[in-house]
């Protein structure tokens, strides 16, 4: 059984305190997530990998209330699907990250609330383990 990140360049793993990974343009200084080889701001064809940290504040949010169709790949069925939160979390590194949210109760989400990164088992992988993905949870609930 091997649990693996769903994509290798999203967050530090294995790690006791995982953080998100991004890219920083050596020319204009703009930050990207996921790290990409060219800069979307100035077009410079180079990028340095940086750590984006594990804390931020909620910039906006919604709730996904129905089971998405393809390209969604999870172990859920229409019967077992539970709504999930989605939001953009503003990180001190200077970028907003789109993420699943651990919270799915609209009454518990508000713009500006402090958030913390979590790494969670998302779906089964082909090695008998799980695909790990990042998400954000309320910092207050820890």
């Amino acid at each position: 059984m091997t649990d693996c990140p769903i994509h290798p360049n999203l967050f530090t793993w294995p790690a006791s305190n995982p953080v998100l990974l991004g890219g920083k343009c050596p020319r204009c200084g703009e930050v990207s997530f996921p790290a990409q080889s060219s800069c979307r701001n100035c077009g410079h064809n180079d990028s340095n990998v940086i750590e984006l940290g594990d804390r931020g504040s909620l910039w906006t949010w919604t709730i996904q209330n129905f089971l998405p169709k393809s390209p969604y790949v999870s172990d859920e069925t229409v019967e077992t699907f539970k709504p999930y939160g989605v939001g953009y979390v503003e990180m001190p590194a200077g970028i907003r990250i789109e993420s699943r949210l651990r919270i799915s109760d609209p009454n518990k989400l508000r713009i500006g609330m402090p958030m913390k990164l979590i790494i969670e088992k998302f779906s089964s992988n082909d090695q008998g383990g799980s695909n790990l993905c990042f998400a954000f949870d309320s910092l207050g609930d820890s």
Partner: peptide, 18 residues
């Protein structure tokens, strides 16, 4: 990359809501 769609973030309805 595929992870974005696989984890349920690639929906126009979410974007409009947010």
């Amino acid at each position: 990359d595929d992870w974005y769609g696989e984890t349920g973030l690639m929906l126009t309805t979410q974007y409009f809501g947010m």
